[in-house]
Simulated scan of single mutants.
Amino acid sequence: MNVSPLIKTVGGATFGACNAENQRLFSVIAGVSGEEALQHASLLLNCVNRLSYLGAMDDGHETMRWASHYLSEMAKAIIDDVTLGLQDVP
């Protein structure tokens, strides 16, 4: 993957909704290279893929489904943040 070194995370994406106000507990940190961030998102999505498959095969594994849900939310936040960084590239 050859992402431009100018593309960085901007720190605008959040995840981990909690409480009645739906506040976000976590956020992507600004300044990480886009390439490294996307590699991390790919690793998270690989885990999501495996967990969701295993969870679909066995009704007794709700924890796998919840884990895949939270990991996919993290990966989405990373991808959203890199996308915001793409908008900042001249």
Score class of each variant (00 low, 15 high):
Met1Trp: 03
Val3Cys: 04
Ser4Tyr: 03
Leu6Asp: 10
Ile7Cys: 11
Ile7Gly: 05
Lys8Met: 04
Thr9Ala: 04
Thr9Leu: 06
Val10Tyr: 03
Val10Glu: 11
Gly11Val: 05
Gly11Pro: 04
Gly11Asp: 01
Gly11His: 08
Gly12Arg: 10
Gly12Val: 05
Ala13Gly: 07
Thr14Arg: 15
Thr14Glu: 15
Phe15Gln: 04
Phe15Val: 07
Gly16His: 10
Cys18Thr: 15
Asn19Leu: 11
Asn19Cys: 11
Asn19Ser: 14
Ala20Asn: 12
Ala20Phe: 14
Glu21Lys: 13
Glu21Trp: 13
Glu21Thr: 15
Asn22Gly: 10
Asn22Val: 07
Leu25Ile: 15
Leu25Ala: 15
Phe26Arg: 09
Phe26Gly: 05
Phe26Asp: 10
Ser27Tyr: 08
Val28Thr: 04
Val28Leu: 02
Ala30His: 06
Gly31Lys: 00
Gly31Cys: 01
Val32Ser: 09
Ser33Arg: 08
Ser33Ile: 01
Gly34Pro: 04
Gly34Lys: 01
Glu36Tyr: 06
Glu36Phe: 07
Ala37Ser: 14
Leu38Val: 06
Gln39Tyr: 09
His40Ile: 09
His40Met: 13
Ser42Phe: 08
Leu43Asp: 14
Leu43Val: 10
Leu44Cys: 06
Leu44His: 04
Cys47Ile: 05
Cys47Tyr: 03
Val48Ser: 04
Leu51Ile: 04
Leu51Thr: 00
Tyr53Ser: 12
Leu54Gly: 01
Leu54Pro: 00
Leu54Arg: 02
Gly55Asn: 08
Gly55His: 09
Ala56Gln: 15
Ala56Trp: 12
Ala56Ser: 15
Ala56Pro: 05
Met57Ile: 01
Met57Val: 00
Asp58Ser: 08
Asp58Tyr: 04
Asp58Cys: 06
Asp59Leu: 09
His61Pro: 01
His61Asn: 11
Glu62Trp: 11
Thr63Gln: 13
Met64His: 15
Met64Pro: 02
Met64Trp: 10
Arg65Ile: 11
Trp66Gln: 12
Ala67His: 05
Ser68Gln: 02
His69Tyr: 13
Tyr70Val: 04
Leu71Glu: 08
Ser72Gln: 12
Ser72Arg: 12
Glu73Thr: 10
Glu73Pro: 07
Glu73Asp: 14
Ala75His: 06
Ile79Pro: 06
Asp80Trp: 05
Asp81Ala: 02
Val82Thr: 02
Thr83Pro: 00
Thr83Trp: 09
Thr83Lys: 14
Thr83Cys: 05
Thr83Ile: 13
Leu84Glu: 09
Leu84Cys: 06
Gly85Ser: 01
Gly85Glu: 00
Gly85Trp: 00
Gln87Leu: 13
Asp88Ser: 13
Asp88Thr: 14
Asp88His: 14
Val89Pro: 01
Pro90Thr: 08
